[in-house]
Simulated scan of single mutants.
Amino acid sequence: MPKRKGQMIERTLYSSFLQEDVSLMIYLPEHYSPLYSYPTVYLQDGYDYFSLGKMATQLDHLIAEGKIERCIAVGVPVSDSKKRFDRYSPKGSRHQAYIRFFGEELVSFIDHELATQPISGARAVMGDSLGGGASLAIAMAYPHTFHYAVSQSGAFFDDLDKRIEAYTHSPALLSIYLSIGLQETEVSTSRGNMDLLRLNHEAKERLEQHGFPVYFREFEGDHTWTYWSEDLLHALTHIWGK
């Protein structure tokens, strides 16, 4: 097994919006130094991204090959399916509190703790499935904080239309990456089986109709980390590519 180039550290902060301690999994690139500053990608399902998606290894390789800028990755783990639904789903009891935690507490904490580039163009928020929808919701709520929103196989519901209608800023503040598997036509969700391929095509069309810049990628595969891990290379190169 190759030696890790970057470094994994852990931090905890108390969220007044969520009324609980939130654990963080953080990747620092090789030769990280507080004398420099780094772009940052924020992750839903932090544990899954680092374990199943091999996020740290993928960042190591892309940085070593000179394909992306050296960057920081901050993963926010979620402990169980109920908490995940409550935070990520627009129907969840903690959804709005979670969005505010991301936009008003998490970023300022990381900017204080680490050598980040404290501008929206150097921040991305990323998630898969329900976390993809949550990531787009966070970026649309805080477009001056997050320029990049990455949704892998996003589970989009009728809340997207409401978010678009409520959006009062310039669409150019955001850069949206949507990816979806061609076999994701009957995905089991909390709302029953859903055609996420169709829903992502519809989301792309609605966003583009309102002037949002969208990069749309289809891949051969289904709703699993086997394909999200591979797609992650495309997403990271898209947002931080040199």
Rank of each mutant, 00 (worst) to 15 (best):
P2T: 11
K3Q: 13
K5R: 15
K5A: 02
G6Y: 13
Q7G: 03
I9R: 10
I9C: 00
T12Y: 14
L18C: 01
Q19W: 01
V22L: 12
V22N: 02
L24F: 03
I26W: 07
Y27K: 04
L28R: 04
P29R: 03
L35E: 13
L35D: 06
S37T: 11
Y38D: 02
Y42P: 04
D45K: 11
D45G: 13
G46D: 08
D48N: 14
Y49K: 11
Y49Q: 12
F50R: 11
L52G: 02
Q58K: 14
D60W: 07
H61C: 06
E65D: 05
K67M: 01
E69R: 14
E69Q: 15
C71N: 11
V74L: 04
P77H: 12
V78H: 09
S79Y: 06
D80L: 10
K83E: 11
K83R: 15
R87C: 09
S89F: 10
P90Q: 10
S93F: 02
F101L: 11
F101P: 12
F102V: 06
E105V: 14
L106H: 04
S108H: 11
I110V: 15
E113V: 04
L114G: 08
T116C: 10
T116D: 05
I119R: 15
V125K: 02
G133P: 06
L136R: 12
M140C: 11
F146Y: 10
Y148C: 08
A149T: 09
Q152C: 01
F156P: 00
D158R: 15
D158A: 14
D159L: 07
D161C: 03
K162V: 06
I164Y: 03
E165C: 06
E165I: 10
H169S: 14
P171K: 10
A172W: 00
S175A: 11
L178C: 09
S179E: 09
Q183H: 08
Q183L: 12
S188Y: 03
S190C: 11
M194L: 04
M194C: 04
D195P: 11
L197I: 04
H201T: 02
E202W: 05
E202Y: 00
A203T: 08
H210Y: 09
G211C: 11
G211H: 07
G211F: 07
P213G: 03
F216T: 00
R217Y: 10
F219T: 01
F219S: 08
E220G: 05
G221W: 00
G221F: 05
H223V: 06
T224L: 11
Y227C: 02
W228E: 10
E230P: 01
T237I: 04
W240I: 00
W240P: 01
K242H: 10
K242W: 05
